[in-house]
């Protein structure tokens, strides 16, 4: 799972109002090179929650992103390269995404997040699924 995807996921538990960003628990990170495409990065920039990306990249061991970013930075190649690396090349391969409000864990296995909920799961009972053995 790329950090771009982490940036697009929120907790889907019924009743949760503050489900973004999901906390990351890391077991394994992999890096996979991706062809650099400045246009894509410029298109995506406005859609990214910057702080969530910075925090996520630090948890995955990459500390090069600036705390704050603004569109004018997109003119800098150096900035674009770092943005590219954090957004697309760092993958959470094994670990979990954790709902910030209920602490419910969504496992990430072989790079695939599993957002399936149990039937009738909601904010009141989801703690019971903390270590849910979801398939």
């Amino acid at each position: 799972m790329r950090l771009l995807t982490h940036n697009m996921l929120s907790s889907n538990i019924k009743g949760v109002t503050n489900g973004f960003p999901l906390r990351i628990e890391v077991e394994k990170v992999v890096e996979k090179p991706v062809d650099f495409n400045a246009d894509f990065l410029k298109n995506m920039f406005a859609k990214i929650e910057w702080k969530a990306l910075v925090d996520a990249s630090r948890i995955l061991g990459y500390a090069e992103l600036p705390d704050e970013a603004e569109p004018s930075m997109l003119d800098s190649d150096d900035f674009l390269k770092k943005f590219h690396h954090a957004l697309l090349e760092l993958h959470l391969e094994e670990g979990a995404l954790v709902c910030p409000e209920t602490d419910r864990r969504f496992p990430v296995t072989k790079g695939i997040p599993n957002m399936l909920l149990h039937e009738d799961e909601d904010i009141n009972n989801s703690a019971a699924f903390l270590n849910a053995d979801t398939v």
Binding site: M8, N12, F106, I112, P113, M115, L117
Partner: peptide, 9 residues
């Protein structure tokens, strides 16, 4: 992503 339609997205 394993999910119901686009739940979580």
């Amino acid at each position: 992503i394993t999910t119901d339609i686009a739940s979580g997205l």
